[in-house]
C-alpha cells in the first residue's frame, strides 16, 4: 500500500509542478492545490498506515487496546486542509479581481503593460 501511495504522491507533485509553471493563473492555483494535497498525503503515508482503531481509552482501562492508529498525522492533515481551504479561497478571490482588472488569465499580459508607465 505504501508503494502505491508513494507513486500517487509523486504523481501529484509532478502534476502540481507542471501546472505551476503554466502561464495561466488559474492553472497555477490548481497546481498549488495539488502541491498541498501531495504534502497532506505524504504526512498521511509517513505517519504509518495501520488498520487500527481510534486511540480512545475506554472507561475502566488504562491504555487503548492495540492496534490503534496514530492520531497526530490525522490532526496535522486536518489542520493543513483547513488552512489550505482558507488560502485557496483567498487565491480564488485574488485571481477573480485580477481577471476583472486585466481581462486576461495569462501572467504575461499582467506584466507587459505596466512596465513603461512605472509608478503612479
Amino acid at each position: 500500500m505504501e508503494s502505491v501511495l508513494a507513486v500517487v504522491i509523486g504523481g501529484l507533485y509532478a502534476a502540481g509542478m507542471y501546472l505551476m509553471v503554466r502561464r495561466s493563473i488559474i492553472k497555477m492555483i490548481f497546481g498549488l492545490a495539488l502541491l498541498g494535497n501531495a504534502a497532506n498525503l505524504l504526512i498521511f503515508t509517513v505517519g504509518r498506515l495501520t488498520r487500527g482503531r481510534p486511540p480512545h481509552v475506554l472507561p475502566g482501562e488504562l491504555m487503548p487496546s492495540l492496534p490503534v492508529a496514530d492520531p497526530v498525522p490525522q490532526a496535522l492533515i486536518l489542520t493543513a486542509i483547513v488552512i489550505g481551504f482558507g488560502v485557496q479561497a483567498f487565491a480564488l478571490v485574488l485571481i477573480k479581481r485580477v481577471y476583472q482588472s486585466v481581462g486576461s488569465d495569462d501572467q504575461d499580459d499582467l506584466v507587459a503593460e505596466n512596465r513603461p508607465g512605472g509608478e503612479e
Binding site: 498549488l32 502541491l35 497532506n40 505524504l42 504526512i43 509517513v46 487565491a91
Partner: peptide, 24 residues
C-alpha cells in the same frame, strides 16, 4: 501579489512536507 502568493505557498508546501517527513 500573485508572485508573492505563489512563491510563499510553494514554501509552505515544502515546509509541510518537511514536517511530515520529520514526524515520520
Amino acid at each position: 501579489a500573485i508572485k508573492y502568493v505563489a512563491l510563499n505557498l510553494i514554501a509552505s508546501a515544502f515546509f509541510l512536507a518537511g514536517i511530515g517527513l520529520l514526524y515520520g
